[in-house]
Design a protein around this nucleic acid. Structure first.
Length: 645
RNA sequence: GCCGAUGUAGCUCAGUUGGCCAGAGCUACUGAUUUGUAAUCAGUGGGUCGGGGGUUCGAAUCCCUCCAUCGGCUCCA
């Protein structure tokens, strides 16, 4: 007998070699039906794998994240079986679970596949699923594994096996399909009740663009048909929040073929959003002791040689303009310009820290396939600043920057984000990173310490640093689930020295400052793209391009409506009047669709009283107020949203 | 940049076994109506069918090519 410890710390005895599934059955048949996999001693296992000694056991059902992964991993195998049925000779790369489903990379040889073929593959998968074939795990020797896939002629699997150690190789087989796989898997295919292939795309073998491009087929499965329906509804809802759709509807931005790809035009409503964001940034930066600077959009090649950017990033900068024998580049970053300003200021230690801020306009020649609405563009304006400080000041400065982030997140009600702390990879010193091993370790420790001291949750990712130092990126997700870096906070211990930046210390010696690059509001482009999706276009009133729509009931009240508008403008409130010869219901409907936060309905009663009848977007009638009362109401709401009270 | 898909009026879309002057709704404009909390009625205007080339008696429709967008891959100072 073996002792099994359950999550509630209860211990029960079972025969040696019992499986999680059998144990579940001993508790209840219903539970057993829902078991997808199991966590044995903290490791996810097949629910059908015998447990041979004392262990802790957690049964995993669909509600557990790990169970979903198991399910989708098994689904990838099921799809592979269906694909092999339709496309004999097909070769398989990797087929893992992902956040929303799974994919399998395949090499179809000369055959082709398109989304038109999805239906037949889905049907085949469901047919195979109904057979309830068991996923059978076998341990094989390296030689057996190599023999099997040599016979099959699948060079991708051979490639994978060659990297594995003998004695640790397992196969899984269900129905007519056998795959190299470390598992775990669901007990049998009958758990898969709903199947949807979602997408088809190219993907390089092992993610290397020098390798052959395989066909990647994405799909998702569920244990209940209704869950698939819910998922499809969710996808539809997400599409409605897409910033490209709302940005067009609300006339925020546009792209034009003649202007060029990735070069957005900000329409008047978008320009208001930008102005409000800049107002917020300028105020918080002023309070935090920043000084504003302004720099040109281009610079000579020599500056980017000095900064060291050229060898790393020349390919993603617009090609240079040659004037009088000199090469000029459109700037892709603001730091070198700011470094030059620091040098000109010629500070002593008493002047530090020096914080230089600019909403700098940059141009980056992003690969054409990378462009994506406002989220990835070629012209961008960054909420940039560079803080020059001593080593002793670094922790306080870095902490203050993080606090500024968190304050912004409160204002924008951003709750779902991840701080990603990127460090260097020692093997790539001198290639991807400046060759200063001691400084890397020292600054990484400083950053880590600040994060821990400030109790900011973060994940550490090796080999993702900037070439000049470690950094923190703030990751957020777009409505359609794509992950983005919204903001960034970077340490630079290398470039100031390259520019010969120095300050005089208290002992009258010259020292090089540390530089912090920070952009809490990222770029206007990405930040506004994100905000559109975050708020689904229903901006908080302080940010809304138009805050109030004035809707006269008939032409007779147009003059009073114009008077109300003027009064709002005098109080710095952004409004519009709908003077069209339409019925009030139509004007309200249009204002609601345009997501205008407030509507003022104006008729005979209001014009006689000098009042306005207030309707709130998405809520309806909220009553009658004097113009002064309404103005105060709006201003109070704005102050509250910006934490200005 | 690579793989795949898509591109018809300002917007959303119909029109593909190739065949009258390419359609609808919304928007815009004009007129009637003077309206009380999510669509008043009528009329008018608007399209190089993404660009270029080809096949054909005839191309939005078939072929080639370029451009742009979308989904991924790679990249991201």
């Amino acid at each position: 007998m073996i002792k099994i410890t359950f999550p509630d710390q209860k211990i029960r005895e079972y025969p040696e070699g019992s499986t999680a599934l059998e144990i579940a059955k001993s508790i209840s048949e219903g539970l057993a039906r829902n078991v997808i996999s199991a966590k044995v001693n903290g490791e996810v296992w097949d629910a059908t794998r015998p447990i041979k000694s004392d262990a802790t056991l957690q049964l995993l059902t669909w509600d557990d994240k790990e169970a979903k992964s198991t399910m989708w991993h098994s689904s990838a195998h099921l799809m592979a079986e269906a694909l092999e049925f339709f496309y004999p000779g097909i070769k398989f790369g990797i087929g893992p679970p992902v956040d929303n489903g799974f994919y399998y990379d395949v090499d179809l040889g000369g055959q082709s596949i398109s989304s038109d073929d999805f239906k037949k593959i889905e049907d085949k998968m469901l047919e195979l699923a109904k057979q309830g074939n068991k996923y059978v795990r076998t341990e094989v020797s390296k030689k057996e594994a190599l023999d099997y896939f040599s016979k099959k002629g699948d060079e991708y699997k051979l490639d994978l096996i060659n990297e594995l150690e003998d004695g640790q190789i397992t196969f899984y087989q269900q129905g007519n399909f056998t795959d190299l796989c470390k598992g775990p898997h669901i007990p049998d295919t009958s758990i898969i009740k709903a199947v949807k292939l979602t997408n088809i795309a190219g993907a390089y073998w092992r993610g290397d663009e020098k390798n052959k491009q395989l066909t990647r087929i994405y799909g998702i499965t569920f244990p209940k048909k209704s869950q698939l329906d819910e998922y499809l509804v969710m996808i539809e809802e997400a599409k409605k929040r897409d910033h490209r759709k709302i940005g067009k509807e609300m006339e925020i931005f546009t792209f034009d073929d003649d202007v060029g790809p990735g070069l957005p035009l900000w329409l008047p409503n978008g320009a208001v959003l930008i102005e409000q964001l800049e107002k917020l940034a300028k105020r918080s930066e002023q309070n935090a002791g920043y000084m504003r600077v302004r720099t040109p959009h281009i610079a000579k090649e020599s500056m980017y040689q000095t900064s060291g950017h050229l060898p790393y990033y020349e390919d993603s900068m617009y090609p240079p303009m040659v004037l009088e024998g000199e090469k000029y580049y459109l700037k892709a970053m603001n730091c070198p310009h700011h470094h030059k300003i620091f040098k000109e200021l010629n500070p002593s230690y008493r002047d530090l820290p020096i914080r230089l801020a600019e909403y700098g306009t940059c141009y980056r020649y992003e690969q054409s396939g990378e462009l994506f609405g406002l989220m990835r563009v070629r012209s961008l304006q960054m909420n940039d600043a560079h803080i020059y400080c001593t080593k002793e000041q670094f922790a306080d400065e870095f902490r203050a920057v993080n606090e500024m982030y968190l304050n912004y997140f409160k204002i924008f009600n951003i709750e779902k984000y991840v701080m990603r702390f990127s460090t260097h990879e020692p093997k790539k010193l001198g290639v991807k990173y400046v060759n200063e091993p001691a400084l890397w370790l020292e600054t990484e420790d400083m950053v880590r310490k600040v994060l821990i001291d400030s109790k900011i949750p973060y994940v550490e990712v090796p080999d993702e640093g900037a070439f000049y130092g470690p950094k923190i990126d703030v990751q957020v997700w777009s409505a359609i689930g794509r992950e983005f870096t919204l903001a960034t906070n970077q340490v630079d211990f290398a470039v100031p020295a390259r520019f010969g930046l120095e300050y005089r210390n208290s002992a009258n010696q010259m020292e090089t400052p540390i530089c912090i690059h920070r952009a809490p509001l990222g770029t206007h482009e990405r930040f506004i793209g994100f905000l559109i999706e975050h708020f689904a276009g229903n901006f908080p009133i302080w940010l809304a391009p138009k805050q109030v729509a004035i809707l006269p009931i008939s032409e007779k009240f147009n003059d009073y409506a114009k008077k109300v508008l003027q009064s709002l403008i005098n109080s710095d409130i952004r409004g519009l009047v709908d003077l069209r010869d339409e019925k009030i219901g139509k004007k309200i409907r249009d204002a609601e669709i345009k997501k205008l936060p407030y509507m003022l309905i104006i008729g005979e009663k209001e014009s006689n009283e000098g009042s306005v009848s207030v309707r709130k977007h998405g809520q309806g009638d909220v009553g009658s107020f004097s113009i002064a009362q309404f103005t105060q109401m709006i201003q109070d709401e704005i102050n509250k949203q910006l934490n200005l009270n």
